[in-house]
Design a protein around this nucleic acid. Structure first.
Length: 349
DNA sequence: TCTGGGGTCCTAGGACCC
DNA sequence: TCTGGGGTCCTAGGACCC
């Protein structure tokens, strides 16, 4: 891994354009240029399903991810609706990551459709163009590349490059490009934090970057508070971690097409989830330490309760028993729309 | 337009022990 | 009589991201 101290050490954030939809179009080229919406089982007339990814053509009609499929259908009645096909996206993701690794620079995978790459190069735009070209050539998928002198800047630069382009954010243009933008535009600041900042008179990235550190620590805690200020100044991460990601938990949650109304139904469904997640546990060769159960009522009230296992285990009976015990602690006085089961995992090895 | 699924990390407070 | 403080473990809940 080349020198993080070097002034020519650049961070690259690679982000696939409309990833799920692009993978679908790749196997059905006749969909190119059309409004395509991927999500759920692909039936936009069924409730309780949302858009995972929409093509730019669909976005132009007002469709965006997270939107109920039914709403998307209303916005874009002519759109092609496709079911989400996880194994295919996972395979496509692996293809892309292999292409990125072929540059022989360290690569840090960040989910299905994103990765960071670090390289000591004189002209980062040359490498960014090579990345885009090679990804396109070998996978027929398009990506944007953000360049930064920190990972945070690289990540935030990508949005200016989308779709398909390159943008650089560094200490030289950070304030000029970002200073007047809302704090919400920072990677890691969501609507809740933005609202809380606004309550304290902090609206823009420049405001946050110049805010009082002690005050931030008081409002957000000793780690998050100063971390927010650092983020507003462009972050400080310059290390690419090539170690494979180690998962900390395995979970499955299901929103049922119709609410579950009896404790028996709920209990049966939770046990089914335990069985599914335990199968994943065995596949992954890991051991569970805690069992968590999530219940979301029809009113969208959502709670999770967890319990530690007597000893780390993969034993189905023990996992089922813990889940049942946790479930007992819920009132269950309202119809249930979603159930989830999560296992926290022991460190591997 | 009634609102998916799979993750990670941080904080706070209670229990318990010394 | 009541008073103290520190440290660790555990769980709930919040927030964020893709």
């Amino acid at each position: 891994m080349a020198g993080e101290e070097s002034p020519t050490w650049w961070l690259f954030h690679v982000d696939l354009d409309q990833f799920l939809a692009a993978v679908e179009i790749r196997r059905r080229p006749e969909l190119a240029g059309q409004a395509v919406v991927v999500g759920g089982d692909g039936d936009p007339t069924r409730a309780r399903q949302v858009v995972a990814t929409a093509t730019y053509e669909a976005r132009a009609l007002g469709v965006h991810s997270g939107m109920p499929l039914r709403a998307a259908l209303r916005k874009a009645p002519e759109a092609i609706f496709l079911p989400s096909d996880r194994p295919v996206y996972e395979a496509a993701s692996a293809e892309v990551m292999d292409v990125l690794r072929s540059f022989r620079h360290p690569v840090e995978v960040w989910g299905w459709d994103e990765a960071f790459l670090g390289a000591d190069v004189e002209d980062p735009f040359v490498l960014a163009d090579e990345i885009r070209a090679r990804v396109r050539e070998r996978t027929r998928l398009s990506c944007a590349v953000g360049i930064g002198d920190t990972k945070e800047r690289a990540k935030m630069a990508t949005s200016f490059g989308k779709p398909g382009g390159v943008f650089r954010l560094s200490r030289d243009n950070w304030w000029e490009v970002m200073g007047a933008r809302p704090a919400r535009d920072l990677w890691g600041i969501g609507s809740r934090t933005a609202a809380k900042l606004a309550d304290h008179g902090i609206a823009t990235i420049a405001d946050l970057g110049h805010a009082d550190e002690q005050a931030l620590a008081g409002w957000f805690g000793p780690t998050i508070g100063p971390g927010l200020r650092q983020l507003a100044r462009g972050g400080a991460s310059r290390t690419i971690t090539t170690e494979p990601w180690v998962r900390r938990s395995l979970s499955k949650q299901v929103t049922y097409p119709a609410d579950l109304r009896t404790r028996e139904e709920v209990s049966t469904a939770v046990l089914a989830l335990v069985d599914d997640v335990q199968a994943l546990l065995l596949e992954e060769g890991r051991v569970a330490t805690h069992v968590g159960v999530t219940v979301r009522t029809a009113t969208f009230f959502t709670r999770t309760k967890t319990a530690k296992l007597a000893a780390p285990t993969t034993d189905l009976a023990a996992l089922r028993e813990r889940a049942q015990v946790v479930l007992e602690r819920f009132e269950l006085d309202r119809p249930v729309r979603l159930l989830g089961v999560r296992f926290d995992l022991a460190d591997p090895g």
